[in-house]
Amino acid sequence: MSLFAEGIRSSVLACSYSVLLVGLALVVLRRKDRMVVLGMFAASTIFSAWIRAAGISNFLAGRVATVLLVIVGLALALMVNRRPAGLAGSALLGTFAGATWQPCVGEELGGVLTLAQDQAGVALLLLAVYLVGVMIPLVAVMALCSYVPAIRRWMDARWVALGAKAVIAAMGVLVLADQYDTLLSTLARWSATWSGYSVLE
């Protein structure tokens, strides 16, 4: 229970943005089957994060990382003008999100990550619980779209879609230019300032 709660708490911290930004892009732009797409995104995020945590593979190493970055950059860029990602696209973006995720390692997650090195199977389940907690804001956005017609209309408004597409296009360009870290860095500093966690002025 506390592992799940720790995941929810960390969803407001900068360390979760790499997962939430991509997930939010999927949820906002996808008008149908949002739940299925988000489910696939979550599953692939969990899986790739687990592969890293268990030390099975490091997606961020060498050529694999470069290829993945380019593919994801193209996928994000394509989402601007075409139908937003389907199941395969969600899986790809989830893999990217899990691979680039640098978690906030609290007390509970610390235990899971330590465990992952010896008992990978158990760690997979625990990591899933934690990451579902991290993705609660996405679930909340989906629920709002589903239950509140005014919000659904607002989300479907043309200017919101345009705004979301602009953000996604920028993300795609940054990923392709290998500057995605700059975006996360800026968001991290911004969030640290407003949340009172920053020690800098």
Binding site: M1, A5, I8, G133, I136, V139, A143
Partner: peptide
């Protein structure tokens, strides 16, 4: 969502 609220409240 309910599980999230319960988990947060619990901790």
């Amino acid at each position: 969502l309910a599980a999230g609220v319960i988990a947060l409240g619990w901790t």
